[in-house]
Amino acid sequence: MSDMNVMTPAEMAATKAAVMDQVPGPEVQGQSPLHHADLASLAKAGTVLGAAAGGIQLREHKLLGHLTLRLNPENTDQLAAAERVLGVALPLQPLTSVEKGSYSVRWMSPDEWLILVPGLEAFDVESRFRDEMGGHYSLVNSSGGSTVLELSGADVVELLKRCTPIDLHPTVFPVGKVVSTVFAKSSAIIRRTGEQRFELVIRRSFSDYIWLWLQEVSREFGLVVKA
């Protein structure tokens, strides 16, 4: 075979990976790793956990499609192909993210991006990548491996200071910045989505621990679960 990054269409078709839709369909009920916590009922009841002030709001964005894309950032053909699929260029600056409609792309490392899409679109997006992109790259659907929590409220920075060593001051952690870091003895991908709003991508196996941790550490601020 010729050079992996310069392939004829025939070679591209021959090396195309087999893609499998991991989601059976909308008729089959999916469960988030926090299913047992029954956040929906907590949200419905409007319970404030801890201090009555309720300075922290927690919302789970469950069952999203998580795609990990790896490619050589010097390969302009592949960058263009990714832009055609996502409608937005991959962020090449370290620790940045972009959003386009319901798609969001996070810089994870110089050759790696985490793309979140609505859960039932993951297979379509993955298939479009396989059609558009040639050469040596990797795209893995890791939807089942993690879940997304959104934390917001007046005390959210104070809360996160108790969880992670990252400096969250707006001058060094502006809206849109994304870091992968240690979080409460576990790890999380933290992205600032607003002045007082953060998104955490956490591992499913640690999600119960982080849910318990967040209840404990937000006790002095008060935690309200939102649907």
Partner: peptide
Amino acid sequence: PHCAEYREEEEF
């Protein structure tokens, strides 16, 4: 040098 910023030793 890849993230282009200082981080705590805990991450390394």
